[in-house]
Amino acid sequence: MKNWQKYLGLIISLLAVTLLAVWPLITSKPVDREVAFTILKGIALASSLNIILGYTGYVSFGHIVYFGLGGYIGFYLISQQGWSIYPSMLAGGLIAGLFAFLLGKAILRLRGAYFALATIGVNMAVLSFISNFDLLGGPIGMTLNFNIYKEYGGAAQALQLIFYLMVAITLITIIVSYLVRTSKFGLGLLAIREDEDAAEVMGVVAPNLKTWAYVLSAIFPGVIGVLFFFKNGSIEPHPAFPLHTSIELIVMVMLGGQGTVFGPILGAAAYQRMRGLLLTTPIFKNIQLSVAGVLLLIIVLFIPAGVVGWIRNRFPITRRVLQ
């Protein structure tokens, strides 16, 4: 195989994201940029989740906890400690990763439904703890002084910068996802997903591999949380840890195809687009949640491998391209 063909899966994925990033720059409409931002956020979060969910087979139902946790840490550093956005993003990601490491050591021993339940419990525990934690604003949360955007050349400039940062994070997430998928580490994860006991008998040190997969899949949501709430200007407990969004992320991964690099990209873009359309179409506006529910049901019942998985199974030749 020619060298560049080996990277085709990655190239296609990066190209898709780049196109999405360039689109609002061409139309230069702020509303398009907002749409693109939301889709990119979905792609990056879904791709991170895919590392533990799709590659490793652990259903992290409350994965949004890392988004909220990172968001809170970063927001605190920016608003209360006067840090700039860059080190705050780093700190948000690192703390999320550290928390995932400590927590993962404990809860990754649970399998199947027990693990899923535990992650829901963790999300709710952190949410209710932060609602009581005055240092982080308790139930009211925290707000940013808008003067803070001056540092970045004003609000408009800051928004532009935030968008570019989102693009960069998304690209990095996808590269990491690809590197994991095609590495020995990733192969070990896939083996754990298929049969953890058999994998261990073959020498896969499952407890370590699982933990690192979990840490990786937590770091990016932590970083994105900082960026998102910096853009948002305020942070509150419930919007920071929405269990609902957590499940939407799983839907994105499932829709596109879990365990593939391209799947979460496709799934996130399709889901966010669909959601946007439902919200703006009068007949669906009031029941958009129901329509989304029916679609989810159709995916689960009829194409559980997701779109990319389905294509890969149906047309094996595409496996080299759609990774």
Partner: peptide
Amino acid sequence: DAPHLSSLLATFAVNMVIIGLGTA
């Protein structure tokens, strides 16, 4: 008989349908 993820998501889909209609 599907993996846990499927039954979790399928029942969650029912959740969305009921909540969506209920909210409407």
